[in-house]
Design a protein around this nucleic acid. Structure first.
Lengths: 205, 205
DNA sequence: AAAGATAATTAACAGTGTTAAGTTGGCAAG
DNA sequence: CTTGCCAACTTAACACTGTTAATTATCTTT
């Protein structure tokens, strides 16, 4: 009994060892340079050993992705302090843009790459991290509407529109679609302008 | 003189042969299954021959990307018939969403993958297709503001916001980030709802 | 200590983009 | 008419990728 427990603990330790190495590699060299062989080399194991602890590379990437969501959640902790739901929404948008621009690799994994989604679809479970984030957004919007600060509309519609816009801005920027339109030092300001415009426009007069 | 011209013509023919094969492969099997070897096999040439006509795979993909823009432009031809700039903007948004959802592979190449941008950055030239499309959007928005149909604001800011939103919606949908939130048969309607909401909200009362 | 289970490895498969070296063809000059 | 050249094209190879099957090493239990 004690033995099987220790074995399980060791197994979890190696799993964590693999994930830590993956994360480091991921942050240092970027998504596209993360390979099973490179991860294995970092922890001095054979490449195939990773397959004893994870089904495939997608599963490893999924965990890196989850860790990205934690990072984002961490950044949003301070939102709870903001009483005004409209200001809170604004700050949440700013946080989102900043997160995307400062952690493009994480952002990629969380919202663009299909590797993490592939693993989610194989398992039954839904995309809890993403659901949670959108739920959070919906609650703020609902609160703002209830307090008569926003023009009334279907909450889902508005939430999707807002998320869509900030995601669109971040992904256009990180995928270099705005490079020739906006000089890089103006990029952040320009994106914030668009966010400000949206919030101002949807605000009740 | 006639000889060197014929030679040049033949060279262009093979270039086109390669591009046609790439496009077919691209449409039939999707972006991720397009490989230099597969393209070569389709036209009965050795893989390395492609490198005599194109610098690298990115350059081939860039041309597929351009062809996607033509397809999109084609779809937008009918916009010219719409007199009201607000209605024109609306239809343009609908077209954009439809294009993205019905041609996810093209959309990917045009707005998400970095392969085509890599080739553009290597050459000096800017992203003319993208610039052109955004310019088109800006003109409509400006016209709507001039005709007092929209709440006045900086045109660039609004254009980027609108583009950002539709792009965000399409890319979230095609990258499966909305699967567990919106059932697939409702997807299109939900996205259209968000677009409608935005246009209605930014419209002058 | 011997047998059995478990952990880790090596070898291999089937692919990828790309470069360097070698081979074939046709055309022009001697 | 043959020789030499140049261009088009191919073969071979490099350095990778994710992943599976078979094999070896290690540790536990009898």
């Amino acid at each position: 009994m004690g033995i099987v427990a220790r074995k399980e603990k060791q197994k979890q330790e190696i799993r964590q060892l693999i994930l830590d190495a993956s994360m480091k590699l991921f942050v240092e060299e970027g998504f596209s340079h993360v390979s099973v062989r490179k991860i294995a080399e970092r922890i001095q194991y054979s490449p195939t050993t990773l397959y004893l602890y994870f089904k495939d590379k997608n599963e490893i990437l999924f965990h890196c992705c989850e860790s990205g969501f934690e990072k984002m959640l961490e950044q949003n902790r301070s939102l709870a302090l903001i009483g005004n739901p409209l200001e809170r929404l604004h700050q949440m948008g700013i946080n989102y843009l900043n997160f995307g621009l400062t952690n493009p690799e994480y952002y990629d994994l969380m919202f663009i790459q299909d590797a993490p989604m592939a693993r989610i679809n194989e398992m039954g479970e839904g995309w809890s991290s993403g659901d949670q984030a959108l739920e959070f957004l919906k609650i703020i919007i609902k609160e703002a509407m209830d307090k008569d600060l926003l023009i009334p509309a279907k909450v889902e519609t508005v939430a999707l529109a807002v998320w869509g816009m900030v995601h669109g801005l971040v992904s256009l920027a990180t995928r270099q679609r705005l490079d020739k339109l906006v000089s890089s030092h103006e990029m952040e300001q320009t994106m914030h302008d668009s966010l400000d415009w949206l919030l101002k426009t949807m605000k009740k007069a």
